[in-house]
């Protein structure tokens, strides 16, 4: 059904032809059988993780063999999804798609019966670069303005961010550790609330991920101050990084697919190959561009290095602020 509909829309006729040629041979070689693969996300539907996972679910069946379902389990602040994957049969059919919050941070601060070594990355979708923004009529318009204002009046600048110790809060903590500046941290229910508080003039600054404000920044309705990454965000090419301003604060947030470490290595290798192949297909590239997902896949080995680096750096931050010993 998917094939015929895609062809009808004429988006990727050649890709479909190529897929049809590959599919039968792969089907025979697939160690996964015909049971569906479940991509479990620890968040509610409709967010960036959900949308990105759906691009893979729509394109990978031709390459991997079985159908792929995206299952959303936001219960127990995401830990329910993590535990569900942890307790599933380790055959590669139940995978976790998450950013570092529910797996790295939770592994440190929450009472869980697994450790960071119980997980192995299969593939990384993308790296999201946390960005600080405000409204265009605010006195603070650059990183330097912010630093100057916070130095002149510590504990006065209100800064909105989603859940405490999450992806768009830890970079702020790291920045304050680096500079010694102090701001008033105002947790919100998420990116939408942060944005309405910033736009309505209730708070000074906010942090989010670039795709959600790209069009407002382009049209001048919001100002992006800076990005917490080594290089500029391709979605916000005119926004400087904090590194450019002389603050070595880099904390990108990845979106990775995990299997438990007891899934056989050949299964993980097969999944990595067919996922990467699927995401390189013209259909997937077209979809990724259309939804602004910025998918740049990393293989299992590179993802593992990235995962271990994040485990180390987040552990360092949490120790420094006294969250863990």
């Amino acid at each position: 059904m998917f094939l015929s509909k895609t062809t009808r829309k004429g988006t990727a006729a050649t890709a479909v032809a190529a897929m049809m040629a590959i599919a039968p041979t792969l089907g025979a070689a697939s160690p996964l059988g015909t049971d569906p693969i479940r991509l479990v996300i620890p968040f509610g539907p409709g967010g960036g993780s959900d949308i990105t996972a759906r691009v893979l679910a729509a394109t990978a069946p031709e390459f991997c063999g079985p159908r792929i379902d995206v299952v959303s389990m936001s219960g127990a602040a995401g830990l329910e999804a993590v535990n569900f994957v942890r307790n599933a049969t380790p055959n590669g059919h139940t995978l976790l798609v998450t950013d570092y919050g529910p797996i790295v941070t939770s592994g440190y601060v929450d009472d869980v019966d697994w450790s960071h070594d119980d997980w192995q990355p299969v593939m990384n979708f993308t790296e999201w670069l946390p960005v600080v923004y405000t409204r265009p009529d605010h006195a603070i318009q650059t990183i330097e303005d912010w630093v100057a204002a916070a130095e002149a009046n510590p504990d006065t600048i209100t800064f909105g961010h989603a859940s405490p110790l999450g992806l768009v809060h830890l970079p702020l903590i790291l920045f304050e550790m680096e500079t010694g500046l102090r701001n008033v941290h105002v947790p919100t229910s998420g990116g939408g609330e942060t944005r309405s508080l910033v736009m309505g003039g209730h708070i000074d600054l906010g942090m989010t991920l670039p795709p959600s404000i790209a069009s407002e920044v382009a049209s001048g309705e919001l100002t992006a101050l800076g990005v917490f990454s080594q290089e500029r965000s391709p979605i916000l090419p005119d926004t400087p990084t904090f590194v450019e301003s002389g603050y070595d604060v880099v904390l990108p947030a990845w979106l990775m697919i995990f299997a438990t470490s007891d899934v056989p290595a050949e299964t993980v290798a097969f999944l990595q190959d067919c996922f990467m192949e699927a995401l390189a297909s013209p259909t997937a590239v077209a979809m990724s561009n259309r939804v602004n997902a910025g998918i740049e896949p990393l293989n299992a080995a590179d993802s593992t290095a990235l995962y271990q680096a994040t485990v180390a750096s987040i552990g360092g931050i949490l120790r420094d602020i006294g969250e863990i010993d």
């Binding site: 509610g44 539907p45 409709g46 967010g47 959900d50 949308i51 759906r54 939408g192 944005r195 309405s196 736009m199 959600s212 790209a214 069009s215 407002e216 309705e221 259309r290 939804v291 602004n292």
Partner: peptide, 23 residues
Amino acid sequence: AFGIPGSATAALFGAAFILMGMT
């Protein structure tokens, strides 16, 4: 008006727009 999803339903419609390539 602002691209802010004000409810779960609005967030889902927002996701539908994004999936269709509309911001």
